[in-house]
Every structure is written in C-alpha cells, then in structure tokens.
Design a binder for these strands. Structure first.
Lengths: 210, 210
DNA sequence: GTCGGATGTGAACAACGTAAACATTAGGAG
DNA sequence: CTCCTAATGTTTACGTTGTTCACATCCGAC
C-alpha cells in the first residue's frame, strides 16, 4: 500500500496516526479530550480499530502522554542550552535552572500537552522509557538527576542531600506548573507567571546550593 | 416528614445526602469515582434527582471537593496546634510548617479526598469560600497567607518577598503531595514519604527565613 | 381544604469504552 | 503466480455515563 493513500482498507501506520491525532486533541482540550472515539474519528477510522494497537483507552492516553513527555524533555534541553557562562560551576547550575525553566515554560506554553503528560498514572518505570526521551537521549527525570549529579560531582552539593534536592526541585516546579495551568493561578497574565516561575526556580536553586 | 424516613417520596435533605455519598465515593476512588449516577444510587435516589440541587455533574464534584477542602483545613489546623515552643517567633514558624505538614499528611492519609479537593477547577474565589473553612473559620489558602503575614509582622520575612514565599510554599507542598499520591513516588512506603515530606517542609521554611 | 412551587421519578437520547463476529488485505510458502 | 494465514479494519451490539423532559408526589401557605 502506498503511504498517504487513506482510502485503502488498511491504513499503513495507524498506530502513529492515532498517536498524532490524540496529541492534537490533547493540545487543545487536555487529557480529557483524548477520547478513544474522537481520536479514531480524527484518524478516519472506526473506534474498534484502536484496539489493534492499544489494549485500552488508558494505554492510548499513556502513549500520547509519552509524546508530550518527549516534548517536555526537549523544552528542558532548550533552556539548558542557554549557558552563557562557560565556567563549569555556572554551567552545572544553569543545567539545573534549565530543568525548572523548561518544565514551567512547557506547562505554560502548551497546558494541554503538559496535562496529558503528567495527569496519567506514570510510574517510576515510565521515568526512563525511551519514547519519552528528548534530543539528547535523556528523559525529563534523567535530565533532572543528571543536573543534580553534576552539582554533586563539582562539590557544590553534598552527596547525601542529592536525592532530597531532586525531589524538592521536582515538587516545587511541578506544583507551580500545576497551580499555574489547572489551579488558582491560571487566570493570571502570562508575563507575570513567567516572572514568578523564574524567581521561584532561581530562588530555589540558590537556596539549595548553599 | 420525619428525618431518617427514607421511604417517603421526598428525601428531606437530599443535597446533604448527595454530598455525603459523594464524599464516601471520593475517599476510595478519588474524583473519578464520584459519578453522578453512582452518587445518586448510593443516596437511594434516581439520577435526575441530583439536578434539583446541582446544575451539573461538575458542580456536584466541586461541592464534594469543598467538603474535602474543609477537611484539609482541619488537618492543617491540627498540625499548626503542635507549637511546643511558646515563643512568638518559633510559634509563627510552626504555623507555616504546620501548613505544609498538614497539607502533606492529609494527602497521604486520604489521597482520594485530596484528589477531589484539588483536581477540580478551583479558582481564586474558591480559595475563600466559607464551605472550605476549618474550625478556625479560615480556608487552607488563608491559613497559608496568615502564617506568612505573621512572619512578616515579626520581621522574620521581608514584606516584598511575602507573596513569592507563599506561592513557593504552596507549589512545593502541592507538588510533593501530587508526586506522592498520583505520581511516581506513590509506590514508596508511607514512613519514608512522611520523613521526606517533613524534611522538605523544614528545609524550605529554613531557606525562606534567612 | 386547596392549590402552587418544590422535589423526586421514568423514559429517552447521545456519547463513551469495549467486545465479538465478520471483512479485507498484506505478505510469505509452495 | 497462487493460496493461505495472520494482521488489520468494520459492523454491530451492550452496558454505563451525563443530561433533558414530561410526569408524579408532597410540603406549606393561603
């Protein structure tokens, strides 16, 4: 079958088409909008067809969430790349700041994608899944632990506080992103949220590296 | 009609019965379990009856969430009361620590209730709603801002950093509670989560009051 | 006592997730 | 090339959900 011929009985790569359709639905509408029927409808296929590629509706949502998670990784990587200072200490610090900035920026830029990436029941295994990796081949969680490990390696953070620091960073940034997208802060204007997010991230990293 | 006579056509106080039934469903099962039909079923009433007291399914969930929010306020108040030190500075500090501890303890003790309290689309108006107040007549959000205001009044926190401190505290605690109940940390044993939560809260308050 | 507004019921509808039986096609074995 | 099988998509159906509308019942004010 020729790729792009949507008329034929078989689709060719329906799994990818469903993921793409689901991601579009998630972008405006969040996880709730990624219904099995709406997704198959958008892919021009009958509802039951999805069951040849996903065991259930939840698995479809999880797979779409993985797409979003990969975009989250890319957002983090972009913000990490902005290391003006080539010094290794400042660089390591910027790597951690970039995790927070990229996390928050992604949530504010595409709240629907952020929603489906994090709303689902992602477990700790999910934290290392290849399909959630960014350009550098690392998942969002790995980018965080890498940044922390670098700081420990440079003696900027005591090793026995590394794990707690990682959880604290993740908690703060995730909490702020949630409050700013789904929570009571979601009505606030975007520039204000950007400024607040930046101050929170820098303030937290400052506090941890002391 | 006599109260408690469930046989009569009219219920007496169906609104309260629905809220109570919905809260029970939420306690095991989270917000997702609070379906309109399940709630009316448990109250021994037809599905459509709910529409005499709530405009929609979402409003029912929101009202049940308010019940949970009030319990959250009570949990915070309980933890705030543990101020061993009568000194006013240590007391103010404990008020803030109590917010974090009570928040996390509530989430870990009754994740279903925590879910419906925070998952819904609560806006900033909701943050002051009377039905979400605890014993002291203050909502969770007010308990947080009160604690911060006290610290400012005692000169322990610069006034211009009060708002940012409030958002940071909320973000961190909310993020940790989310990660520990719905997120990747949910499999971890309870005592470990308690210890981590306590360390995060104390560490954060220490960092802020410097 | 009667009547009106408030409150609960019943039946119906569209949308959803899911399963089972059936239709169509791709791709390898001969 | 042909044929067969496994993979993939369709159809139909079922139960559940939120919601609406016409109807039934009851409380309380007059």
């Amino acid at each position: 079958m020729k790729a792009g011929n949507t008329r034929s009985y078989h689709h060719g790569d329906l799994r990818a088409a469903l993921l793409s359709a689901g991601y579009e639905l998630a972008r405006d509408g969040g996880a709730e909008a990624v219904t099995l029927r709406a997704t198959t409808r958008r892919a021009g296929v009958s509802p039951a067809a999805a069951y040849r590629h996903f065991a259930s509706h939840q698995e479809l949502q999880l797979a779409v969430g993985a797409l979003a998670m990969a975009d989250l990784a890319r957002s983090i990587e972009t913000h990490q790349a902005r290391a003006d200072d080539p010094g290794s200490a400042a660089r390591a610090r910027q790597r951690l700041v970039g995790v927070g900035e990229g996390y928050i920026a992604f949530a504010l830029d595409s709240p629907g994608a952020f929603d489906i990436a994090l709303s689902g029941l992602f477990t700790m295994e999910h934290a290392f899944a290849p399909e959630t990796m960014g350009e550098t081949g690392r998942t969002p969680f790995e980018l965080l632990t890498d940044a922390i490990a670098d700081l420990v390696g440079l003696g900027l953070l005591p090793a026995d506080r590394a794990e707690l620091a990682a959880i604290t960073c993740w908690s703060t940034v995730h909490g702020f992103a949630t409050l700013a997208t789904r929570g009571p802060l979601r009505a606030h204007p975007r520039p204000e949220l950007d400024a607040r997010g930046a101050r929170i991230v820098r303030g937290l990293v400052d506090a941890l590296l002391r």
